[in-house]
């Protein structure tokens, strides 16, 4: 496992998303109300770039005719065929056992911690004053 500094925290503010190539892998990064998610940018179904998907809730029901949208911002709907994935785990809602989006540990770290290493800061000169998005691959 290697840890990578992906970008400064202010490049991924709440409500935004971006794609970063880390160690040859395309990673989709989401910041949903301060919660960070890092997922391989390839849908396990047909390979769509899931960075283009909709971040939304999950539709639930107590029976025919009952509709509720719950857990706002916790799910990602693939842009191609609408499969739903839980952002926190990458699990498919319909098929949690055998279908999942590869997901990675991601968090904000203070520059002061990062300069101590052993991080791979590929493109960013890390400064002590700022915070950075760091993922584990």
């Amino acid at each position: 496992m290697s840890r990578h500094v992906v970008c400064p925290a202010d490049e991924l503010p709440p409500g935004s998303r971006k794609v970063a190539t880390v160690d040859g892998r395309e990673i989709a990064l989401f910041n949903v109300e301060g919660r960070l998610h890092a997922l391989l940018n390839r849908c396990p179904h047909g390979g769509a770039q899931i960075c283009k998907g909709v971040v939304t809730g999950i539709a639930k029901s107590a029976g025919p005719g009952d509709y509720r949208l719950e857990r706002h911002g916790e799910f990602l709907r693939c842009p191609w065929h609408g499969w739903e994935f839980e952002l926190a785990t990458g699990q498919s809602w319909c098929d949690p056992r055998s279908t999942r989006l590869r997901n990675y540990e991601v968090k904000l770290e203070a520059g002061a911690e990062l300069v101590k290493g052993p991080y791979v800061a590929e493109r960013y000169p890390v400064t002590v004053e700022d915070a950075y998005v760091v993922i584990d691959l």
Binding site: S61, W83, S92
Partner: peptide, 15 residues
């Protein structure tokens, strides 16, 4: 089809 269209009929809660 359910995998992609599931939210339209959310009471269908399994395959």
């Amino acid at each position: 089809t359910w995998r992609g269209a599931r939210p339209e009929t959310p009471w269908v809660d399994r395959w």
